[in-house]
Design a binder for these strands. Structure first.
Lengths: 211, 211, 211, 211
DNA sequence: GATGAATGAGGATTCATTCAT
DNA sequence: TATGAATGAATCCTCATTCAT
């Protein structure tokens, strides 16, 4: 799928890699802003300061470029989530959920562009976008299943279905939140967003009897 | 020099209206399947069994056709939801949420195509799609606000944020569910879907202390 | 080229003739305003208060309709000019030129729409428009030739060339003048226009030695 | 992220410029022959020996291409007229008019295609064509005004009106003349055309008392 | 590796013309 | 006669992709 550049001079290799990165960065910026259907190769090339043909030196076609941007974003997200997950700490169920939600919100805050790409609706219909979505669903489902094993999560929940619902709310809210922040509109504080999402996830909307 | 054309030709009027409907139906089917960017006028015309030019006899442009399909779908959804809402009955908070969720799932089941159009991610970036989304968010937020007034809903929830989260889960789950059903894959029972969504919404994922 | 309507009821025939006239009038109005390339059959039909198909009942095609509008306008012009020409009066050369020029300006003033159609640049490239032009050239040339015979017109002038030049100035000035009047802009007085055109034609621009 | 593209590839630049010129030339040829409404981009591309899309590489749209052809033709005309005007010579009024008229005729003879474009009736309704026309009217009017100041031109002439009339005859005669020459028909000698036009302009059609 | 001009297959839209009612 | 919905060829323009330099 990718092409290994010729084995010649290392400086050239490095330069080529840099070009490749510039193209990816340019594509990410445009995809975050406009979504896939409205982002043309010409736009990407211009933004990257590169000729249109150069894009095809580094990616076989438009589709592959898009896929790679999304894959990169997804792996960054995985990285961020893994970091949170790996935190060594005894945590209560609720604290764990809160911590993970904060991690997700932090990712959206710190990698706003990647988040905007990942959560852009038009990308959910591409293979790579769908893959990202399904990864999130799967990990949420896994978390729920594990939670059920530990009696943190209600046993009547269908992990796959509930996981998908949770991902839906996360994508929707974070996508909206990131867009607002990126476009300079007022947006709730990250701490609040995380708290709201975590509470909603843990306890739903209903008042709890005697809590 | 102007003259109002005679109103005659009712058969023709009916035929024209039928053509218009065929075009709308064809567009709905294709939009549900492929989303807006991949649905061309030529495809719509072929599916409707008319010439390409005919589409422009009934709609000023592609955009207007898309808008109308989405608007139709949205108004059908509103209709379905209003019906549920108008049911005269003393309902508990939980029963009310369940009933409304069932109504939504029923809409998705009975108007699978419209639901698929409405929930197709690519449509959320169009004006009409965004309108549909914001309508849902607003009505969820309103429901939450009212619930807070009646002490059904936890007062710490931010209605707009939580409403958006709820819409996210509904769109995600119902979109996925409708797609599976439409493509003939196995999909959970409507009753289960509604129950899961309602429970998740009411109580979240955590086990409830002594319930 | 034309079609004789069926021999049936006379009332119907009269109605049909009226429709035909309405179409011609509508076409004239639009051609005067927009010129041929921007005037569509749909526009003509709407303006005439008639269905698009009806136009084809009275004219074999767009081209024929255009041709007839132009032909009508030309024959009106011929009529107006013939009237002036037929005035029984002993006239000096100069008076004759002035009278004829006044006649042309009067036509432009009184039949502004026909004049606008006739003088619209885009019509000069159609067969009918070219015919109108060539008619004017021929009659100017004839007038010049006659003038030469009577020693009113300088013998060194090439009638065909000079006639074309005269037509050029008439079309250009009257076209401009009619447009201004039709669009409500300030425009010189008809008397002035005629006087200027006649003087220019008779004596050119140079001051005359001892006049 | 932006980067100024290297300026290299002079050969390519030259080739691109050549393509651009080929397109302009093709457009000029077709516009001269058929006028704007009948000249399609496909025709231009075919005539230029390029693909249709290539045209849009060099011109933003059809309109811009047309505008540029007309602007080029106009500037060539201005150049030719300026050359004549700048000739250092003591000239009598009549000699001056003759010289200028000869200059115009020479332009029509030497740049037949450009002249045909410029004088094609359908172009007079485009913004660029109108601009060309108004430029000519303005310069004729200016010449007349100056002539009046020097007592070469009759004081009773309205410069703007007379200027327009003169332009009308020039366009009409030269347009006709160029067309004949371009289509291989017999056409008067340039010297004769210039002489006739100049005489007509100076003295009109009437015999002059004692000349 | 990089360039960017060139390509051409679509895609949206218009409009003269036809024809069943 | 009149209608007006339907047709489809023609036109403008876009954009992913190629390739000679």
């Amino acid at each position: 799928m990718e092409r290994t550049p010729s084995t010649g001079g290392q400086a050239r290799q490095r330069a080529a890699a840099a070009t490749r990165e510039r193209i990816l960065a340019a594509a990410a910026a445009l995809l975050a802003e406009y979504g896939s259907p409205k982002t043309t190769i010409a736009m990407v090339a211009r933004q990257a300061g590169v000729a249109a043909g150069t894009v095809y030196l580094h990616f076989p076609d438009r589709e592959a470029l898009l896929r790679e941007v999304l894959a990169d974003a997804l792996s960054q997200l995985k990285l961020a989530l893994a970091e949170v997950a790996s935190e060594r700490a005894e945590r209560s169920a609720a604290a764990d959920v809160r911590r993970r939600t904060e991690g997700l919100v932090a990712f959206a805050a710190n990698h706003a562009e990647l988040a905007a790409v990942l959560f852009h609706p038009t990308h959910l219909v591409t293979p790579a976008g769908r893959e990202a979505l399904e990864f999130l669903v799967a990990s949420q489902a896994a978390a729920l299943t594990e939670g059920q094993a530990r009696h943190w999560v209600r046993p009547d929940l269908e992990p796959l279905l509930a996981g998908r619902a949770l991902v839906g709310s996360l994508l929707q809210v974070l996508g909206w939140w990131v867009d607002r922040r990126r476009s300079g509109q007022i947006a709730p504080d990250p701490v609040d967003v995380a708290a709201q999402l975590a509470n909603l996830r843990l306890y739903g909307t209903a008042v709890r009897p005697r809590e």
